[in-house]
């Protein structure tokens, strides 16, 4: 297997909310030097790696994968020392109840408190709180005590540890730290095109990093590697899931804001067939990705989305199948070997 689960371990546990991806960026940058011709960053926080074509270049290909993860931001420190928060990125309240998070530069641990069930009136026991109603408890009793530890604007991310779960891996932020590992593996190869990899910032708040990255690189085509949520929980009222874990990368054809390039998506399907690489096709989904920013940059860029199936994305612990990462890597490698 080409996919390095040790790097995935380190990246999954790294602190990287949208707008503060520096720890993730530093981990990646340390790995890039021996593999690339040039490495640089931009003002948004994107990290770029360029690997020039072996022989004459047949064009410029951009691969993007976002570094940021679903996070929280501290909005207010209450008089009782409890912190109120809001979402930074694609965070949802459902998975956070009772979880441990790490806060701010000091990585201070905090607990997202929930009222004990026996103290909750019957009629409110089924209620699902809004994110704005959650508080983070860092074990202090007053605003003054909290002041030395955290401050307004600090980020919080889940504290989940990376590990194996049967054939799968578990950890936080597998969407899209898994994508970073796949993109990183591509740099080991030689291709007949100039390969630009953009490890992007701020995907979760509107694909902001991807847009400026694509504008700067001006590629002939772009391949976005990103997590794609799969829902395999049983529900007899629903048809079976369109995509599953372990059945290969997901070629996403559209989302709420993006129609991916048809020719490029078909070419990737044909390449997968020719190389015997498993893949899945998803017509549409309710979540956007970096593809939205890349496609609309400058005078437009033909873009495809190669999705990595992730179970429980944007929750404190998500699951992924290493075989999917490997298959996505092989498919991207095949595409880069025949860039047009």
């Amino acid at each position: 297997m080409t996919i390095d689960l040790e790097i995935l371990h380190a990246l999954s546990e790294a602190f990287g909310p949208p707008g503060d991806e520096s720890q993730v960026r530093d981990l990646l940058r340390g790995r890039l030097a021996p593999l690339t011709d040039e490495v640089w960053t931009d003002v948004v926080g994107n990290l770029f790696a360029l690997k020039r074509a072996k022989g004459e270049s047949r064009g410029r290909v951009l691969v993007t994968a976002h570094m940021d993860e679903a996070a929280l931001m501290v909005m207010q420190v209450g008089g009782d020392g409890l912190l109120s928060v809001r979402a930074a990125g694609k965070t949802e309240a459902r998975g956070l109840l009772g979880q441990v998070v790490h806060l701010g530069p000091s990585r201070t641990p905090g607990v997202i408190g929930v009222q004990p069930v026996h103290l909750t009136p019957h009629e409110r026991r089924q209620d699902l709180p809004d994110l704005g109603d959650l508080t983070v408890d860092i074990g202090v009793d007053s605003k003054d005590e909290a002041a030395g530890v955290v401050k307004r604007g600090d980020y919080a991310v889940p504290a989940a540890a990376f590990g194996r779960l049967g054939p799968l891996v578990k950890g936080k932020a597998l969407d899209n730290r898994a994508g970073l590992v796949v993109a990183l593996a591509l740099l080991e190869g030689d291709y007949p095109c100039d390969l630009y990899i953009a490890f992007t910032a701020q995907e979760g708040v509107g694909a902001r990093g991807a847009r400026v990255a694509a504008y700067a690189v001006e590629p002939d085509l772009a391949l976005v590697v990103d997590g794609v949520g799969v829902d395999e929980l049983p529900d007899e009222d629903e048809p079976p899931p369109d995509v599953r874990l372990g059945e290969g990368p997901v070629l996403v054809l559209s989302d709420t804001r993006t129609l991916l390039d048809r020719g490029l998506s078909l070419r990737l399907q044909a390449l997968a067939e020719a190389h015997g690489i498993p893949y899945q096709v998803l017509a549409t989904r309710g979540e956007t990705s970096d593809a939205r920013g890349v496609q609309a940059a400058g005078a437009g860029i033909p873009t495809a989305l190669v999705g990595l199936p992730i179970r429980y994305p944007h929750l404190p612990v998500s699951l992924a199948h290493p075989d999917d990462l490997e298959a996505a890597f092989r498919l991207l490698q095949a595409a880069l070997s025949q860039p047009g």
């Binding site: 804001r257 129609l259 496609q295 609309a296 400058g298 005078a299 437009g300």
Partner: peptide
């Protein structure tokens, strides 16, 4: 998405 017009105008 109005994507085409944005690219054409650029």
């Amino acid at each position: 998405s109005l994507l085409g017009a944005a690219a054409a105008a650029f």
